[in-house]
Design a protein around this nucleic acid. Sequence first.
DNA 1: CCCACATT
Length: 851
Amino acid sequence: MATESLDLFEESGAPQADYVVGTVSAVFFASNDSFYKVMLVKVSETSMDWHEDEIVVTGNFADIKDDVTYRFTGKRVEHPKYGVQFQADNYQNETPTTRNGVVGYLSGDDFPGLGKKTAEKIVDALGTNAIEEILNDPAVLQPLGLSPKVSATLISQLQTNNGMEQIIIGLNGYGFGSTLAAAIYNRYQEKTLDVIHENPYQLAEDINGVSFRRADQIATQLGYEADKPERLRAGLLQTLNDLSVANGDTYTTAKPLLANALSLLENSRNVRLDPAKLADELLELAKEQKVVGDDQRIYLKTLYDAEWQIAENLQRLLKADDSPAKFNDDAIRKQLRIVEKQGDIVYDESQTAALTAAIQAKVMLLTGGPGTGKTTIIRGLVNLYARMHEVSLDINEYKEKPFPILLAAPTGRAAKRMSESTGLPAGTIHRLLGLTGREDNLDEAATNDLEGGLLIIDETSMVDVYLMKTLLRAVPVGMQVVLVGDKDQLPSVGPGQVFHDLLASDQLQKIQLDTIYRQEDGSSIIPLAHAIKSGKLPADFTKNQKDRSFIACHANQVESVIDQIVQKAHAKGFSASDIQVLAPMYRGSAGIDRLNVVLQDILNPKKSERTKEVEFRNQKFRIGDKVLHLVNSPENNVFNGDIGVITGIDLASDKHSEVKSDQLTIAFEQTEVTYARNDWNRLTLAYCMSIHKSQGSEFKMVILPMVGQYNRMLQRNLLYTAVTRAADMLILLGEPRAFEACVTSLGVNRNTTLTTRIQTVLDPDGTPAEPDEPVETTSTVETETPAPAAAPTTAAVETPEPATADGTSTDTPEPTTPTDYRLTPELVLSRKIDPMIGMQGVSPKQFMPSV
DNA sequence: CCCACATT
């Protein structure tokens, strides 16, 4: 057999990769949901300067056998915790090609009943490529007179060993590249090709990254007819996903769903389909429990359940008798004074009220804009908790037992900030729960049970419904939960607007922080932010202020105006790290990519022909460039969104170079990291960055262009987020109409029903609010918190009337069980519920695009 | 059109 190369994974971008040849003597770790493995390899040959027998090899490997010799290619890395490792990006089965090798392989453990003698006989007859010969045509064994049993074992074992390769070849035939092929194989294993033949649309349903259209192309190859029910259902699911999840909504309605699905199904095959059949398949999906209809709304089942489960888990935590220890206010104040003394801080009345409420609450929402002291409250709460409960905050004392306070955030960066501000360990929510971030289905994913007394989540506005459901499910009764966030920031990447909806439900205790502590009086940036929040630009918007100015220009002038501003600022002593240009999108003449090129030329020009420079994906990197790190690398203490400066470029082609591949060295605030060329996709120029990426950072001077070109990005919370990144100076430029468009178009406009679910579960007697006409919901919240003028107001601590702050809400009747709303097959079949899920009085004809 | 999460 020829050397087997799975060639399944991304090939190395490095000019020359190192290699290690050897056998796997132990597997230290094998991921459940990917091919990732950490293995100990007995080295027989290597290109590296390595004098030990064994080395730890990491990477993605499929079918590792302990008696097979592999050739791993990749690079040597230094893991901060585990020392030297070999990071393989490719590997091959070094299948024997010599006579002895083949004989050894065939007489090995893989082939029971086949001894050395028989193996020699086979090789003598068929040659050193005997394995390939047998696989091509098992009949070649016949003349050898092997026992039928031995011969059958031999053939089937060889086929199994090569099955994976066959499947990968099959997947390649359908046009799947290495990454997707690995994901598909991982999901179906040896059944992969059967699944695809049976129903190619299964791929679209199960595999992230396979769309309906992709599956439909395969189905066409396989001769699937256009009106097959599987096809119609797949089109409906894809459309449901496009209309809800992709927009951040948790549901859609029948009319757009059927109309869009019909056009998707018809256009991708250029056929006409019967809308009635499509409506039938929608009902079928409901019976299969893949979608749920509720009133006029249609949900993906997982999203429907997630909303209910968030509400139910909140109820579980709030209703529990196991209430947090009761303290009297005097005792709290006494301890608070000690905390103040130790922290060299004085809490004002609103902060004292906030801390006093939070220390006793089962579930507490804490919201406020930038500079309103959320971090101060978190730090104070941690210390107050330790004093009230007489627990130590020294993690060294918790070698055996769990730390009583859990701190987590949805992003690595926010977690790092949390850890820095409290001096306590903090991590991502995923890590807290033991999730890998690649789970197909958070329902099936096993999560850690949380232990401890207090859980604080920061940046809660970035948590989507799936993650919130999974998080709350893991919280034990009696653990206090404090959710901190800024409801006016950008919503989560995933579906829902959980933090907004929790606040809007009015069923949970909340603290609204309004007092601005961070900026001195006379600032006009914070009042601007508040004006934006309330939906209008201030009258002085275009007038220049001490800390803010506006320059009107058209999209094609943005480049030159920014050029001039930055030249001046640079001359005045602002460094590249002080100045941050923010923009909503990458493309276009006023997009991030273009502006980065312009800014790089001003702030870090190529000074001479000899200036070192490397090129990567249309970007040039030079020493001194400001760059953005795009993924989490906790082992280096560098996180998605961190900004650094290139301090070194080492070219492999340099005469004196000691490196084997080109390397960049980047200095971050606390650490310096070296990147081989393979890792450069983790970097991008950062003179201009997306507003989304800037969330959670602050800059001395923010330069913010806004033009009609950004069209659908022009939203209120986007502008709010950008403006609130500026600590000292804000320079706005562009088209006044674009800024107007931002404030008038509501950022928070996702269609969700979480608010209603919470109200139903926590306050079943209350007036059932009709869900969640987004405009109404938002205005409700805003009237509660009248946008303050520049004058600071106090924090409002609200305890909802029917809620359970004192843990004695036993008079609350049992909540209406959500099951009543669910469209189960039983209900459909028993005709207790009209299965037409909100389509009453609507004939499918109405969904037809008018021809 | 923008966006997060991970493994010994």
